Computed example of a mutant assay.
Amino acid sequence: MNDLTRKTVNALLFQAAWFAAVLGAARGLFWLGPLSMIPVLALHLALQEDRRGEAKLLLIAALLGFIFDTVFVASGVFMPLQHLFPRPFSPPWMICLWLNFAATLNVSMVWLRHRYLLAALFGAIGGPLAYYGGAKLGATEALPTLSGLLLLAVGWGVMTPLLVRLAKVLVSEK
């Protein structure tokens, strides 16, 4: 598979898994996000040269995302539809979104590598938009407030370059 095809497949799978998780949660099908991540991550890892490093990145991103979202839920910034874990803990379908995002960092989003300021800007805009989009699709109890979106922008402005850096450090290049 050539590089452009690999990046395109990665980006398309990211979008499909994002919609499966968000729309699944919105419709009470909380298992759809985690279930959709199985083939997405299996294919992602199968196409990686450094599977061990990529698996570490995925697990660390899932843990950091769980903590990040749990803090924001506990502080009332946003209220995802809960499943399996009690509030304020981030539900599994949202943890899958972090796995999904991390799976793009060394493939379709590799262009952010070494561009930490751009990664911060990308995260500060894209992160809150993703949360807002998920809320508009019905995956939260209410839309985030403007102050909540600003807090998410700051959080994602920090998390995105951090994850970009981890993607570089944990996964050996060709």
Score class of each variant (00 low, 15 high):
D50L: 07
D50P: 01
D50K: 03
R52S: 11
R52Y: 09
G53H: 06
G53Q: 06
G53S: 06
G53D: 03
A55W: 12
K56R: 15
K56W: 15
K56H: 13
L57E: 03
L58Y: 12
L58H: 08
L59A: 15
L59R: 09
L59N: 03
I60H: 05
A61Q: 07
L63A: 15
L64F: 12
G65P: 01
G65D: 11
F66E: 04
I67M: 03
D69T: 03
D69K: 00
D69L: 01
D69Y: 01
T70L: 05
V71S: 01
F72R: 07
F72K: 01
V73S: 03
V73H: 00
A74D: 08
A74P: 01
A74H: 08
S75C: 11
S75A: 14
G76K: 02
P80F: 10
P80T: 00
Q82N: 09
Q82S: 11
H83M: 03
H83N: 14
L84Q: 07
F85W: 15
F85H: 03
F85Q: 04
P86Q: 07
R87A: 14
P88T: 04
W93N: 02
W93M: 02
M94Q: 08
M94F: 07
I95K: 06
C96V: 14
L99Y: 13
L99P: 06
L99V: 02
N100I: 02
N100L: 10
F101W: 12
F101I: 08
A103F: 00
A103W: 00
T104N: 12
T104A: 12
N106P: 09
N106A: 06
S108T: 00
M109T: 05
M109V: 00
W111S: 09
L112Y: 10
L112H: 05
R113M: 09
H114K: 13
H114P: 00
R115L: 07
Y116Q: 08
L117N: 08
L117K: 08
L118E: 13
A119G: 12
A119L: 09
